[in-house]
């Protein structure tokens, strides 16, 4: 059963998709299919930092730079309202043994739609601890 539209999700933004010198993100963050996200209802944002550090920093030179968050319902509105190719987007639970909050956006997302999603992403920076 798809994740409820009232939930929020988080997407890891790593050094291959984030250019520190320009502060720009790659459209390939969402372009394509089976985009991996984490459900904030199961793992709150402050715990998601540690989770993503463990999951995505492979090799260690690939570093987590930011986390992007969005409401599932808003994602669906952006997909349906994308004029070039309206797309029905869902977030499907896909729990993994060491990543229970894991979910995927299974649908294929075009570059234009990926850009539209990125424009509305809330981007978080890690608090120095």
């Amino acid at each position: 059963m798809p994740v409820d539209p009232s939930e929020d999700f988080a997407r890891a933004i790593c050094s291959d998709k984030w250019d520190e010198a320009t502060g720009e993100m790659s459209a390939s963050l969402f372009k394509g299919e089976n985009t991996s996200v984490s459900r904030l209802a199961l793992c709150p944002l402050d715990e998601t930092w540690d989770l993503f550090h463990r999951q995505v920093e492979k090799p260690p030179e690939r570093t987590l730079r930011r986390i992007g968050t969005m409401n599932v319902g808003r994602l669906q509105q952006i997909g349906q309202g994308f004029p070039a190719n309206p797309t029905a987007l869902t977030v499907e639970p896909d729990p993994l043994p060491d990543f229970r909050s894991h979910a995927v956006i299974p649908e294929k997302i075009s570059r234009g739609l990926a850009n539209a999603i990125i424009r509305e992403l809330t981007v978080h920076e890690e608090n120095p601890s």
Binding site: D16, K17, D19, A21, T22, E24, S26, A27, S28, K31, G32
Partner: peptide, 14 residues
């Protein structure tokens, strides 16, 4: 310009 690496191993210039 920004330079990225996609999950398919492609260079992306923006």
């Amino acid at each position: 310009p920004s330079l990225f690496l996609t999950d398919d191993g492609h260079i992306e210039l923006a």
